[in-house]
């Protein structure tokens, strides 16, 4: 099967610390991978390299066979863990922005998703609560027909009802032609949507495998496994 993402011996060092020390990871087409690890384990660093906004110190990462750049950005839909929308924007401006810049953006889908998330296209981005902002970001990101979706903590700081909605939206809008990486530390809420999981600790992938096989072989839930690895 075809690998949408391949990372080989990926390293990223800063002056005073090494965020990634030789991470190896592959994701096949049509799969959802959970990248699990505590804060500071290198999750976000990895995702930022894949999104093309951080550059590795050594090793390589290929998306659809290419190094991160203009092409990969056009096929990667990235949900960052930051509030990156312009403050002057209304929700409909944000939708228009994505439509203007991404040729794979599906406006109809975006408005359907906004309705599903109970967001009003005329409210301004500034006025939204944290949960609503997260829903808006997810709407924008999922309305693209990307080859690879990268979701950094999509459930972070969101109340349980919003979590349900976000999970539903992810499952409904996932297609077998695309792949997804999701990071989280709320493993319990989301483990059933992973095909594969990779545990990242201290900048290294310490365990990667099929979620069902891991359950079968270890007789544990992914959540329990996570707690065991990261005690």
């Amino acid at each position: 099967m075809y690998n949408v993402l391949e990372a080989e011996n990926l390293c990223k060092s800063y002056l005073n610390k090494r965020a990634l020390r030789g991470a190896n990871l592959t994701i096949q087409q049509g799969r959802i991978l959970g990248l699990l690890g505590p804060n500071g384990s290198g999750k976000t660093t990895f995702l930022k390299i894949a999104a093309g906004i951080l550059h590795p110190s050594s090793g390589k990462l290929l998306i659809d066979g290419q190094e991160p750049g203009v092409y990969t950005k056009s096929i990667v839909s990235y949900l960052p863990d930051t509030e990156y929308l312009f403050k002057w924007m209304k929700i409909k401006d944000a939708v228009q922005y994505f439509k203007d810049f991404y040729s794979d953006f599906d406006e109809k889908k975006a408005f359907a998703l906004l309705e599903f998330m109970k967001l009003d296209a005329n409210s301004s981005v500034k006025s939204l609560s944290k949960g609503m902002k997260e829903k808006l970001k997810l709407t924008l990101v999922l309305s693209r027909k990307a080859k690879l979706y990268i979701l950094d903590e999509p459930l972070g700081g969101v109340d349980p009802t919003a979590r349900e909605k976000i999970l539903d939206a992810i499952i409904n809008n996932f297609s077998e032609n695309s792949s997804m990486i999701i990071t989280t530390h709320l493993v319990n809420d989301i483990e059933r949507i992973f095909d594969e999981v990779a545990f990242i600790s201290d900048g290294e992938i310490v365990l990667q495998g099929n979620a069902e096989e891991l359950r079968l072989n270890k007789n544990k839930s992914i959540d329990e496994l996570y707690r065991e690895v990261f005690q």
């Binding site: 990156y84 922005y97 810049f101």
Partner: peptide
């Protein structure tokens, strides 16, 4: 600022 995440993830050279 965080807006960089918006600009630098666009498929723009």
């Amino acid at each position: 600022d965080d807006q960089g995440y918006l600009l630098f993830t666009l498929p723009q050279s």
